[in-house]
Design a protein around this nucleic acid. Structure first.
Lengths: 176, 176
DNA sequence: TGATTCCGCACCAATCCGATACTAATATTC
DNA sequence: GAATATTAGTATCGGATTGGTGCGGAATCA
């Protein structure tokens, strides 16, 4: 799949909303309000926000009028940090925690045909995610159609949710 | 996690091995031989190879001296095809099959703060994987250390399995 | 015929994910 | 201080996915 989990989805939505709210005022935003705004399941969202606090991506304030605030400026928070906080470090292959090949950890290094490329892949995806910040995410929201502000990003036209099937690889498996 | 499954790991290993074997002769390579060479569980490997045949990435020959052969030239087989064949289409977010936000599929398009960026992310990762071919993978194996042949790839030094922590993106921010 | 090899399907165990529940801690307001 | 709003911690649960196995069958070759 190579998919992010729903947790990350929700987190990105929440974070983006926090950016929006906090450019207007400086009050914390409660989990309840976020959940209601986007129709997310509150208990789950709270778990996620909790994890983001532990990762120091958010700060929290308890009590009435409490809630969550961004711990840093949106331009300084990369997607990689968010993803890593919620899903653990990205490891494209099991290699990271030792491929069970030949039962030797990965001592077959001279044999393992996928060392180099996997590493390269890994680094490039990491870099890519590290360079994309919450600020970018928010700006994309502000400019949903047409050419985005930063030249190397693809314009998101309309909702992502629909046109995935444009991909040439739509049905490799409906196994069941 | 953003991880590939072990199936894909095994597939890449097998495919890379097929490239190597078939540059030397043109005989099919049996699943058994691949499994023994790398210590992979044979039944599982056969399942994987089967899927690759169905995806027309490999061709198979039955009977004694039968086995699997690449269906195309290594330079024409992208990692994206392999991944898609085994794990289904890449969809970074659940958006692809409708975010259950507000219980409306994704009709909150005007609201959904992550449309644009997610789509952009998605496309770039796809493109990236589509550009990397089995040939690149094999060449990386041949040049494990130092500068790789193609200029835009990072050199894979030593086994991937160990040095993940070398990544420059380990701690993008020590905010605190 | 018999050995070798792939094919199709069904199955199982472990893990992970999405989601919920409950209790505790903390801050505000009155 | 009491009531309330809000986050924190932990435990749990069902279901899907993943990793892995097993079995009977079909094709091919000698």
């Amino acid at each position: 799949m190579l998919a992010l989990t729903r947790k990350t989805d929700y987190a990105l939505i929440a974070l983006s909303y926090l950016v929006e709210q906090q450019t207007q005022g400086d009050n914390p935003v409660s989990a309840k309000r976020i959940a209601e705004t986007f129709g997310l399941p509150l208990p789950l969202l709270m778990n996620i926000l909790k994890e983001l606090v532990q990762a120091k991506i958010l700060t929290s304030t308890r009590g009435p009028r409490g809630g969550y605030s961004l711990a840093t400026k949106p331009a300084q928070l990369s997607l990689l940090e968010v993803i890593t906080a919620l899903e653990g470090p990205i490891r494209l292959t099991q290699c990271a925690d030792r491929l069970p090949v030949l039962g030797q950890g990965c001592e077959l290094s001279a044999n393992c045909p996928i060392r180099g490329t996997v590493r390269s892949l890994h680094q490039r995806i990491n870099q890519f995610l590290a360079e994309m910040t919450l600020q970018d995410l928010y700006e994309d929201k502000m400019e949903p159609a047409g050419v985005t502000g930063s030249s190397d990003k693809v314009a998101g036209r309309g909702c992502t949710c629909r046109n995935e099937s444009e991909s040439p690889y739509t049905e490799p498996r409906q196994t069941a």
